[in-house]
Nucleic acid binder design. Sequence first.
DNA 1: TTGAAAGCGCTAACAA
DNA 2: TTGTTAGCGCTTTCAA
Lengths: 332, 332
Amino acid sequence: MTTIYDVAQTAGVSISTVSHVLNGTRFVSDETKARVLQAVDRLNYRPSSLARALVRQETRTIALIVPDNVNPFFAELARGIEDYGFQAGYNVILCNSDRSLTKEQAYLDMLISKRVDGLIYMTSDIHTEKLQPLLDHNVRTVAFDREYEGFDALLLDNFQGGYDATHYLAELGHRRVACIGGPDARTRSRDRVHGYQQALLDAGLAPDAALDVTGQWTYQSGREAASQLLQLSSPPTAIFACNDAMAIGVISFLHDRNLRVPEDVSVVGYDNITLTAFSSPPLTTMATPILETGQCICEMLLDRINGQLPPEPQRVTIRSELLIRGSTAPPA
Amino acid sequence: MTTIYDVAQTAGVSISTVSHVLNGTRFVSDETKARVLQAVDRLNYRPSSLARALVRQETRTIALIVPDNVNPFFAELARGIEDYGFQAGYNVILCNSDRSLTKEQAYLDMLISKRVDGLIYMTSDIHTEKLQPLLDHNVRTVAFDREYEGFDALLLDNFQGGYDATHYLAELGHRRVACIGGPDARTRSRDRVHGYQQALLDAGLAPDAALDVTGQWTYQSGREAASQLLQLSSPPTAIFACNDAMAIGVISFLHDRNLRVPEDVSVVGYDNITLTAFSSPPLTTMATPILETGQCICEMLLDRINGQLPPEPQRVTIRSELLIRGSTAPPA
DNA sequence: TTGAAAGCGCTAACAA
DNA sequence: TTGTTAGCGCTTTCAA
């Protein structure tokens, strides 16, 4: 491996000169500069970010912890983050937690040791104390759709989204509106269900616990929830799934049962992942600007890292808006 | 930031002792060991992988370059890679190339500088000479679905897959079978189209250039290709899309046009991404064990890094097999 | 306009 | 059974 010493030697200068021409950190005569550059080229020299990071105390690497990068929502978010990071000269380490505390803990330890400059944290209900080491070790962290004391956060307006989706369905004339929530009872995403419940109340519709079911955010769990819902003696005419994947699962199940969407049952999703424009029928959903959200999170993190943010933790909330497509209609 | 010196000091030992108890690299008396561990704990010490990497000449970090991590196929592959890497103690840096040579080049440079131990390369037709620096700088590389001289590769049996899909359609009785290929004319994935063509020939079906169209691997391009195909004076009764996303796009278009799948048109995809089990109807596809393939690639890379592979470049080929679901039937 | 040298936080060879 | 010390490959202060 060729080092800065090799370059210095073949260029006939000192290593500090090489360093300075490479970083543009002080004036170097054109002639010496040329000799250095030529040596760099001839030796095919690539400076070691490792050594640099050790002295500069910054790695220009950030990490992203998601439950599962296959989930299209997180995939798109990751994409936005990676895009923003790339143009700013940062690399991103991808970590899947599977919502397992053990895996998260293992990753946290690895990442601190690797001295990542920052972390974007999207996942389970970790106890705040588990995050303490991040603070101690100077790993700037922004949380997504979660609030931890002392940490920046990018939030979603889940209550409003759940409310709007349900309100729309009620306006269409549906009186039996079901909701498929996520598994976690205490997280912010639960607010989508709360918004649903409130909208029902406001529309003068009696809440029915049987219509309020739970999924696992996956296609498959959407199918299962739909199955459960349709076994009811008085099944819903509209289903609001708290994310798009489950909504797609619902449509899949209805298709199997020869029920038509939206003629027999209306379906609304949440997030507006790319796929929803291409489902059959295209899905009405609470559209979130996912890519932009990813970029926004990364921007917040890099701003924090580079000291452009006020010392107190920041909170930014992103709203979703109803996007009407082919999966919804008035009840028959 | 607390260092190994701090730990040594509070434990009243030398730094080499600290290093050795942390790495288990030489015998240390139980008593000293306990003191060290206690100090580590009290100071909340995390060794710097950076410093370690500098002396050990290994970072335990690998990188993955994909065209786009949102594409479900690459997302699932990435997942398999990340899984395998994690359990082996490696982190993975995610890079999206958008099939842009410029971006790839920029990433290659960053990654070499970061001294990643290895790279998994899934993307465009880069000229082999662009990869030369990887060899020079000791970045072990395995290519996916591409062959570069001097590099390990994990390949897909694209010809056979294209053949099998088409053969199945012909057997069902279809005589007008269309194919939607990928954009790149010279890549291995093109073999799916070649397999299609051969199967047509073998079935005694006349090739028709109008039935052999091109997409961009995306949902949207699948829609567009379907639109083009259905404008034909004699449209196909079956469509083989060279990946699942395009197949989903085709179904989406047919749904818009009130054409039934499979009654009016049969559709076959390729890859078996998770989604295909939940489309309406579920998609018949050439199933590839995507997750396992990802793991297999990562295993190959780590084996190469750790010197468990023979010096000559390895080639492994993965076959896909027909998975019949609801999107195919005999022609009306 | 450039160079010498200290130091970033570790590992591991050598010594005791 | 443990300690001393020379690097790993850079950046940056101080000096010239």
